[in-house]
């Protein structure tokens, strides 16, 4: 039995088949790119739009390549199988220089285009400000008291008065310029909020999926950060950098509200008495002690911060 070598001038049905395959691959890829927005949480910050679009672009290109390659593999599986007891060899093709150049250059162009677009997105968002290292002695672990790094944007008053975000094992504390202490983060909708991130014990990650933003809090460093919430609602803020024993419980909420409501909340919060924040890690640790301290070693949770407003663990979050 001999194989039908694909040489000579292309046959019309082969060209048509190839065209149909490429077109259906394209259609499927566009469909996947459109679908990709549904795989992500609600979009609640200015970053979400560009990030989701970039992701959709990658889903589209990726789908095209994935379906194209696996389509060819499927074709060979269906039509290039050796019948049983057929010990013949296939076409002894050792390579094709033109083809090899094409499949070197095209991926290069694609990834460089994606990188170029990604740099443009990062430049637009410009969420990350300066980083000041505070090393040595007591001050290193109490970075929040360190002098602020240079303001990063035109909004000088807000930038000069950032909200302090402090990560601990395992609690979050937010200190507002007016002196409000809170264990949930309230932010005004539609304005750039300035944050100053620090950690007192180990590395933590400030991660709000609905914002598509994440930044580590590093002990011994104070990191300026800013973001623009764009949609009112209650969203999860999760610790994204593994921080030991009760890491999984180290989450709280971000509440985005219209600027007036935000101002009201700030004023009302200041009238509340300071009390220890509700803290899931402490509860779990106390349960563990009550059961005889079984399990593997962990440092005990830091005392919950004293706050005017404590996060409500039962409040439903949107994402």
């Amino acid at each position: 039995m001999t194989t039908t070598a694909t040489s000579g001038s292309p046959r019309p049905w082969a060209v048509l088949l190839l065209l149909a395959a490429v077109l259906s691959d394209l259609a499927a890829s566009f469909w996947m790119a459109a679908q990709s927005h549904r795989w992500l949480p609600v979009a609640a910050s200015a970053a979400a739009g560009p990030v989701d679009d970039l992701f959709a672009l990658e889903v589209g290109i990726g789908s095209f390549i994935f379906l194209g390659c696996s389509g060819v593999m499927l074709w060979t599986l269906l039509f290039n199988r050796a019948p049983k007891y057929d010990l013949d060899n296939g076409d002894p093709i050792e390579g094709n220089l033109k083809l090899e150049i094409v499949w070197t250059v095209i991926p290069l162009v694609i990834v460089m285009l994606i990188a170029w677009k990604a740099i443009a997105v990062s430049t637009t968002l410009s969420t990350l400000g300066g980083k000041v290292r505070v090393s040595g002695g007591h001050a290193a672990m109490h970075g929040a008291e360190a002098p602020a790094a240079a303001p990063m944007a035109a909004d000088a008053t807000a930038a000069a008065n950032p909200i302090d975000v402090i990560g601990r094992q395992w609690s979050w504390e937010f200190i507002y310029p007016n002196g409000v202490h809170s264990s949930e983060l309230h932010l005004p909708e539609g304005q750039r909020s300035f944050l100053r991130l620090s950690a007192t014990d180990v590395i933590h990650g400030f991660y709000v999926p609905a914002f598509r933003l994440k930044q580590d809090l590093i002990p011994g460093s104070v990191i300026d950060y800013s973001l623009i919430p764009t949609r009112a609602g209650r969203y999860r803020l999760r610790d994204s950098m593994f921080s030991g024993g009760y890491f999984a419980s180290n989450q709280t909420d971000v509440v985005v509200e219209p600027p007036e409501a935000y101002e009201d909340w700030l004023a009302e919060a200041l009238r509340q008495p300071l009390r220890p924040a509700a803290n899931a890690a402490t509860d779990l640790y106390n349960q563990r002690l009550a059961r005889g301290d079984r399990g593997w070693a962990t440092v005990p949770p830091a005392p919950p911060p004293l706050v005017h407003v404590s996060a409500d663990p039962e409040a439903p979050h949107e994402s």
């Binding site: 070598a5 060979t76 599986l77 296939g90 076409d91």
Partner: peptide
């Protein structure tokens, strides 16, 4: 791509 090229027209 080289692996896929190897499969193409082969006797799998």
């Amino acid at each position: 791509f080289a692996w896929i090229g190897t499969l193409w027209g082969g006797k799998l």
